[in-house]
Amino acid sequence: MWTAFRKALALILSGDRELGNILLVTARMSLSSSLIALLIGVPIGLWLGSCRFRGRQALVVVNRTLMGMPPVVCGLLLYMLFSGVGPFGRLRLLFTVEIMILAQVLLITPLVAGSLETYVSGIAQPVRETAKGLGLGAGKTFLLLANECVYPIFSTYLLAFARAIAEVGAVSMVGGAIAWKTNVMTTAIMQYTNRGDFSLGIALGLILMAVSLLVNILVSLLQRRLSR
């Protein structure tokens, strides 16, 4: 175990090119998918949390169900849709980083929307009541409500990023874990472990944790600065 750790550190310090490529693909996929999910999920969460309309509760239940969707099911669905015989086969997206991002977005957006919906439903009523009492219109009230969500939006982003960077089921199905193309840290860890190459597996694991820590620190600093 200790030897594997030593080898892993040496590999990180050596600037291995394959390792660098895996890191880049992982960063591209996780950052893109978490940001896209945030852009889609935040307005949905604000809408579900603040508006009262017929069918709202049904949509909340659907979203909460999607929050628990197994990644392999998501991967399988996309695989069927984008394979050669599937309706979107001619787009030739299977085994590309783009479809991996799409899979991640489908998995993460309900988490973002659900997290925001829970927060917003707790504050929507007093915000609306106070805004109405000041004679403010619907647009301004919505902007004020969105402004109240700055802190939870950052926390939600961390949740989204953590899910994106640690996910393996869907991305391995639609990405195929092709070396130098779609191999990301989680799929590579599985590959190297299956091959008995624990050093590279541990090296990737260490980097995965370090990247996660770095993003957490950066987002938390930004969150603290904006929440002051």
């Binding site: 007093p126 915000v127 106070t130 009492g133």
Partner: peptide, 15 residues
Amino acid sequence: AEVRYMPQKSYPFRL
């Protein structure tokens, strides 16, 4: 009618 209302728990906006 132009009405202004201060609720029992008036919300302090994050401003």
